[in-house]
Amino acid sequence: MSAAASDSILGRNLRRFRRDRASLAWGVVFALFLLAAIFAPLLAPHDPAAGSLLRRLQPPGWMEDGEWAYPLGCDALGRDILSRLLHGARVSISIGVVVALVASCFGTTLGLLAGLAGGVVDAVISRIVDVLFAFPLLIFAIGLMGMMGPGLLNIILALVLKDWVITCRLVRGQTLDVRDKEYVEAAVAVGASRWHVMTREILPNILSPVIVVATIRMATIIMTEASLSFLGIGVQPPTPAWGSMIADGRGFMMDAWWVSTFPGLAIFLLVLSVNLTSQGLRDAFDPRLAR
Rank of each mutant, 00 (worst) to 15 (best):
111 G>S: 12
20 D>I: 01
239 T>N: 09
258 W>V: 08
113 L>S: 10
214 A>K: 09
45 P>I: 05
10 L>M: 06
45 P>L: 01
287 P>C: 11
156 I>P: 06
13 N>G: 01
29 V>L: 12
194 R>V: 08
16 R>L: 03
225 E>R: 06
99 V>I: 02
77 L>R: 04
168 C>W: 05
119 G>T: 05
68 W>N: 07
85 L>D: 09
12 R>H: 09
197 V>W: 09
159 L>R: 02
151 G>M: 09
204 P>W: 00
54 L>D: 13
124 V>Y: 06
188 V>M: 15
254 M>Q: 12
270 L>A: 14
231 L>V: 05
103 A>E: 02
113 L>G: 11
192 A>P: 12
175 T>S: 13
156 I>T: 00
218 M>W: 09
125 I>A: 08
263 P>H: 06
85 L>P: 10
200 R>A: 09
52 S>K: 14
247 A>N: 14
11 G>K: 14
290 A>H: 13
83 S>Y: 09
205 N>W: 01
97 V>A: 08
167 T>D: 11
263 P>T: 07
203 L>H: 12
170 L>E: 04
258 W>E: 06
223 M>S: 10
131 V>I: 15
254 M>R: 14
172 R>A: 01
32 L>F: 04
194 R>E: 14
204 P>I: 01
161 L>W: 11
233 I>E: 03
167 T>C: 13
111 G>W: 07
279 Q>D: 15
279 Q>L: 07
242 W>D: 09
118 G>A: 13
251 G>T: 10
104 S>G: 10
115 G>M: 00
157 L>S: 01
243 G>R: 02
129 V>C: 15
173 G>E: 05
120 V>H: 08
191 G>C: 11
141 A>Q: 01
234 G>T: 04
150 P>A: 13
286 D>T: 03
107 G>E: 08
268 F>Q: 06
